[in-house]
Amino acid sequence: MDAYRAIADPTRRAILDELVDRGGQSLFELCSRLTLKHGITSTRQAISQHLEVLEEAGLVRWKREGRSKLHWFVGKPLKAIAKRWRIGEQA
């Protein structure tokens, strides 16, 4: 899936909001934030699938730290979108 479709979903946008707020989150932390801050009560499995879509689009990467899997936001695909329409170059 490409970045356009990946960010078309409001839950996936909320995931990115939270990963920008703090990089290096476990699935548990992310689900807690989505529930308590956004009122998103999707199952852990659903959030895990959203993360996979975001990874596929290059917007999220994960790394193992100790025995836990932590997630980070990656802005590069969005930069490419901004560049395509020359956002930032014009007034």
Binding site: R22, S26, E29, S32, R33, L36, K37, L70
Partner: peptide, 16 residues
């Protein structure tokens, strides 16, 4: 070692 530093989430502040 903390895997999650204190974070405010609605009515709670949690850390792991």
């Amino acid at each position: 070692r903390f895997v999650q530093a204190p974070a405010e989430m609605g009515p709670v502040v949690v850390a792991v």
